[in-house]
């Protein structure tokens, strides 16, 4: 939507809510029990009640509870729940798996962002021209977004088996492919690539929108000044779409922290713990080993990371504000 039609909520509600009250009241046949604005306030609370209470109950209360749980531990079979003080935090500090897990999380997120944004931008640039049939390709690149995540991942797990489809195709051209999911580096790469192909269409569409928003006059002017296509792209287009690049990268990073099904289906965190990202580790501790207290401690770590990323993003946006106008 363009700037012109945007109204700030204050102005909008000032005009629609408070102002016409008296005007309206005189036209009413029956006098209401409460004044219009009071009733309107009540209506407002009622309208937001389901959503608001849901957030309190299903987000804020659990958020408080993870801090409480992290000071306790369960024994599910024995049916005990006891206060253990800072034991879980000491365990966290001394956990030899924490560093590799955080590293895997970082590598996964970084790899995903770079590959996803790179490919998305590349595809968007290719698709950003008026050529017959281009929408067919747009549909193709976008289609995995609507394919069931687990179905998509299961298919790839078959394709990536040592004797699976990918190596079968490679063998046809005389290449002996690696055992993708069983060797550390290729396993991580596989998980990233599978995830990128699944969701790159979303970022591609965002970039396409951004590219189409680049004013043609700017491009024409640059071209008249003798800028090459490449210079045009890097000096003019990329800076102009940089807010979208920043936004998509943050969305992609935050999304990458939540990846679970892909790991569970493709590698179960292996080989070794090379693809055990934080969410998967949290799940393992809480629901495989039933260490709910330690799982909650890991949830705090995850929460802290998301919080830091969010704050960093606010700071970054301030600096990039120029391009948004």
């Amino acid at each position: 939507m363009a700037d012109a039609t945007m109204t700030t909520p204050d102005r909008a509600s000032a005009r629609s809510g408070a102002a016409p009250t008296s005007d309206l009241a005189s036209r009413r046949r029956k006098r209401p029990l409460l004044s219009y604005s009071t009733r309107d306030q009540l209506t407002g609370y009622l309208f937001i009640a389901p959503q608001f209470l849901g957030i309190v109950l299903f987000v804020l209360v659990p958020l408080v509870l993870i801090f409480w749980y992290s000071f306790n531990e369960w024994n599910v079979l024995a049916g005990t729940f006891r206060f253990v003080g800072t034991e879980n935090f000491e365990k966290l500090m001394g956990d030899p798996k924490l560093a590799p897990v955080l590293q895997a999380t970082g590598v996964f997120s970084a790899g995903l962002v770079v590959f996803n944004l790179g490919l998305a931008l590349f595809l968007a640039v290719l698709l950003n021209r008026r050529v017959r049939g281009i929408t067919v390709f747009r549909t193709i690149f976008f289609s995995p977004v609507v394919v069931s995540l687990v179905a998509w991942t299961i298919v790839w797990s078959f394709l990536l088996q040592d004797n699976g489809g990918i190596n079968g195709l490679l063998q046809l051209v005389g290449i002996d492919g690696p055992n993708w999911l069983r060797e550390g580096p290729t396993a991580m790469a596989s998980v990233i690539v599978v995830q990128v192909f699944k969701n790159v269409g979303l970022n591609m569409v965002l970039f396409l929108a951004a590219l189409q928003g680049v004013p043609s006059e700017v491009q024409e002017a640059a071209r008249m000044d003798g800028a090459s296509d490449r210079a045009l792209f890097w000096r003019i287009t990329v800076p102009l779409i940089s807010p979208t690049i920043l936004l998509t990268s943050i969305i992609t990073i935050v999304g990458s922290l939540q990846v679970f099904a892909q790991i569970a289906v493709l590698t179960q965190g292996g080989p070794g713990i090379s693809t055990t990202v934080l969410v998967y580790y949290l799940y393992q501790q809480a629901f495989d080993f039933h260490h709910f207290g330690y799982g909650s401690t890991l949830a705090i770590v995850l929460f802290a990371i998301v919080l830091v990323l969010t704050i960093a993003q606010w700071q970054l946006r301030k600096r990039w504000v120029f391009y948004e106008n």
Binding site: Q161, D162, N163, N179, W180, L181, R182, P271
Partner: peptide, 10 residues
């Protein structure tokens, strides 16, 4: 010997 399927082969 490849008498047992390797990892990832079923």
């Amino acid at each position: 010997k490849q008498s047992m399927p390797g990892p990832g082969t079923t």
